[in-house]
Design a protein around this nucleic acid. Structure first.
Lengths: 144, 144
DNA sequence: CCTGAAAGACACTATTT
DNA sequence: AAATAGTGTCTTTCAGG
């Protein structure tokens, strides 16, 4: 599962432009288009590249409220239990277990504050959740 | 800046597969390829779609340590000051101002704990930073 | 705002080195 | 493993409804 220098440059090119043609990438890294394709196929097969997506302005889709929520769970709730429960909420964009007092930190995108409140209430009602602590995003400073 | 139902379906298709052809998308939404292309061009021009990118497994690129850091800043530090300072760090993947005690919340990706520690030290040394509070990511539960 | 057609560019496979 | 050549598909522009 080692990436050589050319692989890294191909990945960088595809991160900068996910719709770049193999020819364009090839010109950047000094390879022919088929050679680039083979490497990209291999990177996907190995799981280094997991997919391609469009980057969307959340506001344009009506997602205007964003928050980070710390989850405090009962005794020894397994990560898989938390993951399974959170997967039900499309508003939960991201979730991870963390060090420190909280058991998990989740990233929520909602249409407005009211919508966020409803989602938070439902998450709070999950059996394993003891309490939550939220911070609302005021403005995005940067995003990569 | 209104998106109709077809626009939303095109965006959904491109979020699911950022390299989908206009023909494929057209088949899904009931439009010809040129019609899809014109809508995508318009969505990009309006800033609804900001770009396309490859989704990469951070571990495959050697990014094995991830953390969220709360920033506590001096008196009235402007968001643009914070943004400008953080833009210098490629390890800062995400940053936003938030409600609550902290002034900002940032998402950091580093090669290992040592690397993270170095980045954190440099951020702590920024003139406007009073103190920071970090949580390390233990395991990712989900990601969309 | 869409469809349909045509030209050019690109992807993909097979072959060769 | 990469370059090249050839075939098929897609993108892109343009004309027309």
């Amino acid at each position: 599962m080692e990436l050589d220098d050319i692989d890294r440059r191909i990945v960088a090119a595809l991160r900068a432009d996910g719709r770049a043609t193999y020819q364009q990438i090839g010109a950047q890294v000094g390879l022919s288009a088929p050679a680039v394709k083979r490497r990209v196929d291999r990177l996907r097969a190995r799981g280094a590249i997991t997919g391609f997506t469009a980057l969307v302005d959340p506001a344009a889709l009506g997602w205007r409220t964003e928050a980070y929520v710390e989850l405090f769970c009962q005794g020894r709730t397994s990560p898989s239990t938390i993951a399974a429960a959170l997967a039900k909420y499309p508003e939960v964009v991201d979730a991870c277990t963390v060090s420190g007092e909280a058991d998990a930190l989740i990233h929520v995108m909602a249409e407005d504050v009211k919508h966020f409140e409803q989602v938070l209430e439902r998450i709070n009602a999950e059996r394993f959740v003891v309490r939550t602590k939220s911070v609302l995003v005021l403005s995005r400073l940067l995003h990569r």
